[in-house]
Amino acid sequence: MTAHYATVPTPVGPFTTVVDADSAVLAAGWTADAEQLRALIHPDLRPADLTERAELGAVTRAVTDYHDGNLTAVDSVVVRQHSGEFLVHAWDVLRSVPAGDPITYTEFAARSGRPAAVRGAASACARNAAALFVPCHRVLRVGGDLGGFRWGLPTKRWLLDHEAVSR
């Protein structure tokens, strides 16, 4: 399978999105390295080849619109990730966390149906390949500490501030 990718500039650096033939997002993040993203895609969905495009239509518009202040622009973009039942459900739950209203890992675990699985909730964030579209940046440690973020804590801080101001 071949997938397409496009990179656009954002206020926090280049943002690359990898999509399948149906334009579903397979991976995304603040990097210009599409191969880095390809490696994050579950082996069952991982494309053998990547082809660069100047843009990806509605997906690229959603990324640009989000960074310009339309915080719901990415909400309707289709995402395709594969894993076990808990992670897939947890990623769906993440998509329901509103911009500007972050939750803790403890709250995320509870919303995902496993209140005692705080580490599992953190793992769902860490294993999320579709950053921004599955907004793992909206999950914080108890007390408001940022916790981790694959794309760096300065990027996570920018996203949270952007969502707080643009809300």
Rank of each mutant, 00 (worst) to 15 (best):
M1K: 12
M1S: 15
Y5Q: 08
V8G: 06
P11M: 09
T17S: 11
D20V: 07
D22R: 14
D22Q: 14
S23F: 13
L26F: 00
A27E: 01
A28Q: 00
G29K: 00
W30I: 10
A32M: 02
A34N: 01
A34V: 05
L37T: 02
I41A: 04
I41L: 05
I41S: 01
P43N: 08
D44I: 09
L45R: 11
D49N: 11
E52P: 14
E52Q: 14
R53V: 06
R53D: 09
E55A: 15
V63K: 02
D65L: 07
Y66Q: 00
Y66A: 01
H67P: 01
G69R: 11
V74P: 00
V79F: 01
Q81W: 03
Q81R: 08
Q81H: 03
G84V: 07
V88E: 14
H89T: 13
W91R: 04
R95Q: 15
D101G: 06
T104V: 10
S112V: 07
V118Y: 04
A121K: 05
S123V: 08
A124C: 01
A126S: 05
R127M: 06
R127T: 10
N128L: 05
N128R: 05
A129N: 03
A129P: 01
F133I: 02
V134Q: 02
V134L: 05
L140Y: 02
G143T: 11
G148M: 10
G148L: 10
P154S: 11
P154Y: 12
K156V: 05
K156N: 09
L159I: 01
L159F: 05
L160H: 06
L160F: 05
D161N: 14
H162S: 06
E163M: 02
V165R: 13
